Simulated scan of single mutants.
Amino acid sequence: MNKNKYGTYKFGLVTASAFVIANMIGTGVFTSLGFQLLGTTNFFSLMLLWLLGGIIALCGALVYGELGAVMPRSGGEYHYLREIYHPLLGFMSGWASLIVGFAAPVALACMALSTYLHKMFPAFNPLVTAITVLTAVTLIHAYDVKMGGTLQRVFTFFKILIIIVFIICGFCLPPHGQVDGFSAATFSFDDVFSTGFAVSLIWVYYAYSGWNASAYMANEIREPQRTIPRSLFISTVIVTILYLLLNAVFLFAAPVEAMQGQVEVGLIAARYIFGEWGGNLMG
């Protein structure tokens, strides 16, 4: 039963988790590795980066889970800061989230989608594609809550399925010896305390952003005291595992020189795994 006693549709655990996963898995994981490779090329250091990012995101998810259970109301940090500290802090946080926290990442996601699509189909204008997709998805979510939840579940499951297929193929299809471009056999604490490692954490933080998504729609969730903490925890763990495996595939599939400083590392790795045409399709 997905409705409350008033007959209003409410999201369950699966949909709430799908929102969190979809918010987290975006352009960050498919674009940030190229910049991280400018700071360090050590395999274990890079994996530690993504593991550390996942642990930090999980800590945040646990905190938000507790806050969501105690104060089950939509708004996320706007509501929490307003109630715990002062309405002014909530107001400032709300404006920051509106402009930087939501508008900018959504715009970047649309730009990344249109860029990838343009490389496969040059006839597609990147700007027109980005605006069209953003408008269409927004209208669907605004039209009906249930339809928006269904769309989110389908897109999220499809996204996870594609990533799993990509990971499996990445470990099975590439010929041996493509890991020679980076130091996969050694680990140094000097890398961990280097400037490059610290700067790379910024990209990792961006890739993990979105772990608090379900807290923003507490009023739309069934039994938010139970569902919000569970959705945040489950989703963050799933995304952390996928990120670690996905970046390992990128490093095993493509030479470091081909990815350093590049934005579309996902497309580059896909071309090394599936070939030019298959890589474009996967991208």
Rank of each mutant, 00 (worst) to 15 (best):
66 E>Y: 07
91 F>E: 11
157 F>A: 08
88 L>N: 08
160 I>Q: 03
103 A>W: 15
140 I>P: 02
105 P>H: 04
77 E>T: 05
77 E>H: 04
83 E>C: 09
163 I>N: 00
78 Y>S: 10
122 P>C: 05
163 I>W: 06
60 G>Q: 05
77 E>G: 02
128 V>W: 10
76 G>W: 00
110 C>T: 14
118 H>L: 02
72 P>W: 02
59 C>K: 06
96 A>P: 12
108 L>C: 10
94 G>P: 03
89 L>V: 07
148 G>C: 08
115 T>K: 09
161 L>Y: 08
104 A>W: 15
95 W>V: 01
123 A>L: 12
141 H>K: 13
174 P>N: 05
81 L>Q: 02
119 K>L: 11
140 I>S: 07
139 L>D: 14
126 P>R: 06
74 S>G: 11
108 L>Y: 14
96 A>F: 15
160 I>M: 08
59 C>L: 13
124 F>E: 00
134 L>R: 10
158 F>H: 05
92 M>Y: 15
98 L>H: 09
115 T>A: 04
156 T>Y: 05
122 P>D: 02
89 L>E: 05
81 L>Y: 07
59 C>R: 08
109 A>W: 12
163 I>L: 02
153 R>D: 13
111 M>K: 11
70 V>C: 07
97 S>P: 07
67 L>P: 08
74 S>I: 00
129 T>I: 11
119 K>P: 12
129 T>P: 03
166 F>R: 03
63 V>I: 14
97 S>C: 11
90 G>S: 09
120 M>G: 01
128 V>K: 08
121 F>T: 13
67 L>K: 11
172 C>D: 13
